[in-house]
Design a protein around this nucleic acid. Sequence first.
DNA 1: TCTCATGTCGATACACTGTATTGATTCGTG
DNA 2: CACGAATCAATACAGTGTATCGACATGAGA
Lengths: 230, 230
Amino acid sequence: MTVWDRPEPPLRPVPLDRERIVAAAIALADEGGLEAVSLRKVAARLNAGPMRLYGYISTKEELFDLMVDEVQTEILPEEQPGDWREALRTLALRTRQTALRHEWLADLLGGRPALGPNGLAVTEAKLAALDGLADIDTVMRAVETVSAYFTGAIRREIANLRAERVTGLSKRDWQRASGPHVTKMLATGRFPALAKAVHDGTDVDAETSFTTGLEWVLDAVATRLTPPSA
Amino acid sequence: MTVWDRPEPPLRPVPLDRERIVAAAIALADEGGLEAVSLRKVAARLNAGPMRLYGYISTKEELFDLMVDEVQTEILPEEQPGDWREALRTLALRTRQTALRHEWLADLLGGRPALGPNGLAVTEAKLAALDGLADIDTVMRAVETVSAYFTGAIRREIANLRAERVTGLSKRDWQRASGPHVTKMLATGRFPALAKAVHDGTDVDAETSFTTGLEWVLDAVATRLTPPSA
DNA sequence: TCTCATGTCGATACACTGTATTGATTCGTG
DNA sequence: CACGAATCAATACAGTGTATCGACATGAGA
């Protein structure tokens, strides 16, 4: 093979760093969901071979960890509001909004401990909101409870959202009218309470459902805080 | 190739049904986690070719749906206790226990709407527990909130459990002593509340954490129920 | 300025995945 | 007994995460 047949060597490889890798991965996930993220595709976006990434991460799971940590920056508000309740509410709502912007986050939420810098910062913010308002153990239980609530609520919301997308129908309409399976099941009479709920319940939007439950949980937390000493 | 070279045809294929397929898949997942479930391995356990499964499911996701629905039978208690609170608590605790028996459930919990017969039965049980104790919309909010809580709590618990397994240390010990990364981060002083929590907080076991939060949420629900008419 | 060691990079390779297609084989039915 | 339909397995394909390894550009030392 002569020189003329051989292509010029590729230009010096673009320098890589985790930031660029994670950004590429997030872009892919935003476009096509988590399953669209493959090391080959991420590398391709950066004009690199797949193996190149293994200098920066040692496993695909680590890439996911980095992605989660990265979007946590969107969760922390610029300034922490004063009231503990407002602070926790804001963190919960911003987590939800972030998950709506990056739906793949719902698949990862709660899946692994969030130990990256931004994850720790979010945890810090949660704990700081309640700092001094009760003994530490109560504060920890409170943070765990609120976080567990919104993790679960967000997962369910995104799950429903996806289901609605594939059928093109709202969950309610779908159950009531054209979801043949559920309709048939309800018709069996084996699920009276469920049938009543589907039939008589108001089809409340996801945000209302989320905030309603959130306020309930925050109420529960409020009861446990030590009353401000008189 | 003569008859003598050719092996006898395989015995008539073992008849298949979804039950056996799902059982095989669950066994695999119990042993090696969700990622150990491949259509090839499931089929192999049933002495069948991979393609055979596509007569019973049309996608791997559907197999997961069936697996989730199957283990829901372990969640429903034999008899429904009388008290709404007891009923919801039992459902939550049994979901947790089921997830501890089948850790892969944590990966799937809340990931897709549970519309199988057993999933519907569990939802029915939740709704039935509160039936008549408040208007339907309140009942639905209550069920959503409790479910969201324990979905998130279970996910976190399993996530921590796995993390502990790979390091061989309790989360607390690990953070305090030998988790170099977290230790270093805490040492930066950027996370004072977190540092205090790790340092001064009691290392409560997972079950206590779970039930504590659960009772809080149940308290919150209680507040919303219409007081028994005098 | 030349040589050599070092370490980075990418090509290749491997074992495996979910699933479409296709061809053989069996069975029920006329 | 023959044929049509249905069932099933083999093959195939495009993709996956990651181990291995050879080439090559780069920096250090002489």
